[in-house]
Nucleic acid binder design. Structure first.
Lengths: 255, 255
DNA sequence: ACGGGGAAAGTTGTCTGACAAATACTACGA
DNA sequence: TCGTAGTATTTGTCAGACAACTTTCCCCGT
């Protein structure tokens, strides 16, 4: 009975994860086109240099992500591309969404500052109230036109010795900076959204009339150990994007 | 090389699916509380009467759904319940969402009719233009107050000999009727949404002023074989719900 | 020539047993 | 008291085999 407290951290990468990434890449690059059948499990396992059990672990994951479909006795097929570019449930960050829509992502009016966390923020990020947080506020543009106002909040201690990275966050994707420069990978997040009208402050920053339609998104992102990393508030121009969600069924079929 | 055309249908249920359902039930019923560690794989496999390989298939699925977390060398833990009740990505249907919010779901102004499919509908549902579809239009209420206007469209052939089921759909959840009475289980769907203002028609039906904030949702639902079943248009009152999405990370970590 | 039935091949699902790798607990020593 | 090495536990991976299911294709009867 080795364990008691909360588990801590995973370090090395199971081989099945590498296999999963390799297959995801092949699908994304079109090497494996939608609808085609994958090689049989024994053949694919040999090709990838892993056992069939390991390959099946990877395939089961891909099936859960909706990238492939497995048919007993028939084969494993690449699902018909249902990965909508701006899909809310798989895409993180505004930068990626804008790029995926084929537009050029930019930032204007970027600024940041440090301040003590409010009670609400402290609760979301699991901090003591009053501990310092970094606030990054940006207006994001698509092909030069303002489309999103975002305010990202993360505990200042993550930047302990790298205060200069706050500058980077104004220019690059925050998720990119977190992962490349700080080694923090966002694993999942919970987003809540609601239609709102632009108030006078938001309207001025996005250069739109007051009362314009927006989608407000509140979001908290976590790393793989379920530790809260970033809290975000975003206001998206309703006309700029179509938001898409891939919904999975209740999966509560009869046995 | 046995296969060529599109795969058709799976009939019998792999045992790993039954195992998954059993574990999901235990978690939902609280037999396995959040944060607790599951028995070891060999122990659990023995208890459930399957091999360890089959159990691992089920566990991998549950991990993909975010219900458990596996830690190499440590154990498998029940994830801390992040299944938000009104979550857009796991909950289907307005009825369930209203009930999950603790309110009483009702229907007023329900009506239905048959008509030839429009070109757009035919495309979504994979029909020939002009084939008949059933249109079910309802105003859904939460605790008596109108909150959602919905229009569901499905091919008339599904009701071939059960035209009386259209009546049922006015009263009960459409997903319930599909599954219980027609044996059609919705497996997944793709929803697109956007903030809109209520036009005069919608405003009258929902008993709200013109211009009120709504969230418009267009959705197509598929069965497990990727066959389009229902196309829905819904207008949700912005004040009535908070919409939540569980976002999964890009999972594109370095290898 | 055509259509139907059944055997055969191919593929995924499951089982068994074993070992490797990582983690958690424990006992020992400084 | 603290750190360290060792040991037990647990998940990850491997190999081979058979079962269940699907698809193909050939043979046979009409």
């Amino acid at each position: 009975m080795p364990s008691r407290g909360r588990p801590v951290k995973a370090r090395t990468r199971p081989r099945s994860v590498s296999v999963r990434n390799e297959l995801t890449d092949r699908i994304d690059r079109g090497v494996l086109a939608a609808g085609t059948r994958l090689p049989s499990e024994p053949a694919l396992a040999t090709e990838l240099g892993v056992s069939r059990a390991t390959l099946r672990e990877a395939l089961r994951t891909l099936e859960g992500e909706g990238l492939v479909r497995r048919m007993w006795g028939s084969g494993t097929y690449v699902a018909h591309g249902r990965r909508v570019a701006t899909s809310l449930d798989v895409n993180f960050g505004v930068t990626e969404a804008i790029r995926a829509a084929g537009m050029e992502a930019g930032t204007v009016q970027g600024r940041y500052w440090f301040e003590p966390a409010s009670a609400a923020e402290a609760g979301q990020l699991n901090l003591e109230p009053g501990q310092d947080v970094l606030v990054v506020e940006r207006v994001r543009t698509a092909d030069g036109k303002p489309v999103v106002l975002s305010r990202d909040i993360l505990p200042a201690r993550f930047l302990a010795d790298h205060a200069e990275l706050a500058d980077q966050m104004l220019r690059r994707s925050m998720y990119e900076v977190l992962e490349r420069d700080l080694g923090i990978a966002i694993h999942h997040g919970v987003a809540t959204f609601r239609p709102v009208r632009a108030d006078v402050t938001v309207a001025r920053q996005l250069e739109i009339p007051r009362g314009e339609l927006l989608l407000a998104i509140w979001q908290v992102d976590y790393d793989e150990n379920d530790v809260a990393i970033v809290s975000s508030h975003e206001y998206h121009l309703a006309d700029a994007f179509d938001f898409t969600v891939h919904r999975r069924g209740p999966g509560r079929r009869v046995q």
